[in-house]
């Protein structure tokens, strides 16, 4: 429903936002994006997973294997302090960007 380019630019922000509340694993993250967007946003594993890897490489998030009773072990990711900073910065940029875009695309009321 949205173009790939549009989606790609926002993945990092989406993932960071979801991990802000609590640690989550990969499949869960994909499902939550789908649910919270009311099905409008859908990402494949092949889109999310490399970004997780990349953000972990930068030290924004931290992955840990967790085994819950009766389930297979999964890798849970949580936000690091550095990730919090990155999230705040990205949010700011996003808001400024959308406001700027809105200012341009919405009919002028002046």
């Amino acid at each position: 429903m949205f173009s790939a380019a549009l989606k790609k630019g926002s993945v990092e922000l989406l993932l960071l936002s979801l991990l802000q509340d609590e640690p989550r694993h990969g499949y869960e993250i994909g499902k939550m994006i789908e649910e919270r967007s009311g099905g409008r946003l859908r990402f494949r594993i092949s889109s999310i997973y490399p970004i997780l890897c990349r953000m972990e490489g930068r030290g924004w998030i931290e992955g840990r294997w967790v085994e819950k009773p009766g389930e297979r072990r999964r890798r849970f990711y949580r936000l690091t302090a550095k990730g919090e900073e990155a999230l705040a910065a990205q949010r700011r940029t996003w808001h400024e960007f959308t406001r700027a875009v809105n200012l341009v695309v919405e009919p002028s009321h002046a």
Partner: peptide, 24 residues
């Protein structure tokens, strides 16, 4: 399987991520 899409793109992207670089 539809969750993956293109395997080779995934492989490339994963390997290219900093997490796996040897001395990044």
């Amino acid at each position: 399987l539809a969750l993956i899409g293109d395997w080779s793109t995934l492989a490339r992207d994963v390997q290219g991520s900093k997490r796996f670089a040897r001395a990044p």
